[in-house]
Design a protein around this nucleic acid. Structure first.
Lengths: 345, 345
DNA sequence: TACGGTAGTCGAAACGTTTCGCACAACCTA
DNA sequence: TAGGTTGTGCGAAACGTTTCGACTACCGTA
């Protein structure tokens, strides 16, 4: 690989002049500049990132930190990563994939001590996230996909749960439903204090109240079997519920089975929608489910972009909320005209 | 951040001695070594990766190169990435996520010219992959997840399609089926020359022949609608087929609908299985589909490991084939005892 | 006693950049 | 004509490592 010195020799100038010409960091006479650029092109010169980073303390490398997935990552997490990587590249940066081990703080200390990364992008942020606290204390630039309970002036991109819940409620309300239930994420899959689970619960309740329709919460099925059971219990306690939003894919499978077991049909007897599931997943179901698709790629892109902004400038904190996109499937319809009854096959 | 010099001062030795002591690169007296280690610990010394890389020409950074996904990445691709990142970290390396832009070769030239990465891990390898050709010509160490038509002595980890097809055929044959069909990946989703599509086709044919059961190929549905049509045409042309393997998730949705439209049931009237789909996807279906789950994480890990091996040693090329895991669902059963007929609802 | 070998340590150079003070010429202004 | 201002380029230092030749002290041996 050719170095700055090779270019300098070929162009008959000093090394520092080449650096200045190529980076535009100080004025260089037009003729000289042209000679240098040509020499660089002829040699196929590429600046060495390590040398540059060593000197300038800026590597233009970002680290994407994510916990070992408790239950395997989904499409959304993949989108965070690819979105962030894309945006980073467009902005002339690189993205390092950093799985956490048992001790995330130690991991972080190590990672930032290496001098390798300029900033950190945090995924799967908890309401009280120790990583965020550590980074803030250590003065390491970072941004979050998701957010802590009190993000203060930390940059983040997160789902707009209020808007999302509003859209969901508006969707079923406009179809004529008067009562909606939510099956939240199970504690097992993500642990307690998982932001999306808590915020979604709160915002659905608020949106339903604002729209003046009934709202039932409390079930948190994490598997098909639990979904089936939860639906049975829901119908026992609240036979008037005609619309159901489910956050866990697998639970939805159970709900569909339970509906069928009663001799009911979707969407005629129940409007069923997924929350925070990608349309690709929703399409796997029969009927194709309506879903509120999380803006994974966009959140990833935003997270990376605001981190780069933070690194290169100061500016006010950027805090962005992006709503899920409602993708209508074949599982939404008007509520049944008269009370449903079990019609076992 | 403290540097080698700080440690040297504190331990009252020369910088070079500290380096030697900490890296074990040449003998250092036991007492001195202890003093140095203590000083390093007290200062919380971390070697600067950039400086080290600049000098030693080894950064311990690997790049994972992947094309912009044509149709959005799936779980398997996610597993490649997380598996590779995990293994890299365990081996003291880092993994850079590198999306390709329009011109992969230029991208590669740029990436390797930076001096930032020691080696490249290639994903989504085509049978005639220009990236592999370029890297080989450029002398850049790399390994592949997947493989070219003629991998020569290039390290790779790929799916063992022969074993996978064998397992699939054995599965249906043992249930009593005498005729199997395969719906391959659509050309649109992955382009022609996509290794898995071609190899799967060949190996299913070979396995069926070896087992002495009938085999039908040729359909390549890439959506639910195409899946439905393909199934209708299949039944028209080959009414004797009682087992079907589908490679595209969405096509399976259409097949299931078509089966239901005939008044048939799965698995009673048709044994349906997914090929190269994760169990998490198979569980979304009703009934839960049998699937041949690709070893995504393991392939990612293997790819990273063999690349690290290649970097640090010479050794013979490593070429590993890993079969898919057959996860039995509720969609496999013995073939129907008597010929099926349409029983429209 | 002199000599070669060895274990341990040091200092300097090198990796490829960026940055910064300084030099030099040409030009303008008073 | 003297002094200042610009425009342009140079050289050296610095970033934090690794590497390598050289030096010292000590030991055993001839």
């Amino acid at each position: 690989m050719s170095s700055l010195r090779d270019v300098a020799e070929r162009a008959q100038v000093a090394v520092s002049t080449v650096s200045a010409a190529l980076n535009g960091t100080r004025p260089v006479a037009a003729g000289t500049k042209r000679r240098i650029e040509q020499a660089a092109a002829e040699l196929g010169y590429r600046p060495n990132l390590l040398a540059r980073g060593l000197q300038s303390k800026r590597t233009r490398i970002l680290a994407l930190l994510y916990p070992a997935p408790r239950s395997g990552f989904g499409l959304t997490e993949m989108q965070f990563a690819t979105g962030a990587a894309e945006a980073a590249r467009e902005l002339g940066h690189h993205l390092l994939l950093s799985p956490e081990n048992a001790d995330p703080i130690e991991e972080l200390r190590h990672l930032t001590g290496l001098g390798l990364v300029d900033g950190v992008l945090l995924m799967e942020v908890g309401l009280d996230d120790e990583r965020a606290a550590f980074l803030a204390a250590a003065g390491v630039p970072f941004s979050m996909i998701g957010r802590t309970r009190d993000p203060g002036s930390i940059d983040y991109a997160d789902i707009d749960f209020a808007a999302t819940a509003g859209d969901a409620v508006a969707h079923v309300a406009s179809l004529g439903h008067r009562s909606l239930a939510l099956f939240n994420l199970s504690a097992g899959a993500y642990g307690d204090g998982y932001g999306p689970a808590i915020r979604a619960g709160e915002e659905f309740a608020a949106a339903a109240r604002a729209a003046g329709i009934g709202y039932v919460d409390g079930h948190r099925p994490g598997s098909a079997e639990e979904g089936r059971e939860a639906f049975e219990r829901l119908m026992d306690a609240h036979p008037d519920v005609t619309a159901l939003a489910v956050m866990d894919d697998h639970a939805a499978v159970g709900v569909i089975a339970a509906v069928a077991a009663r001799g009911w049909r979707i969407p005629d007897d129940l409007t069923l929608m997924l929350v925070l599931s990608s349309a690709r997943v929703a399409e796997m179901f029969h009927p194709r489910l309506t879903t509120l698709e999380p803006p994974g790629t966009e959140l990833g892109r935003l997270g990376a972009r605001m981190l780069v902004d933070r690194l290169s400038g100061d500016g006010p904190p950027q805090q962005r909320l992006v709503p899920c996109r409602l993708v209508a499937g074949d599982s939404s319809a008007a509520p049944p005209p008269k009370p449903r009854e079990r019609r076992p096959a």
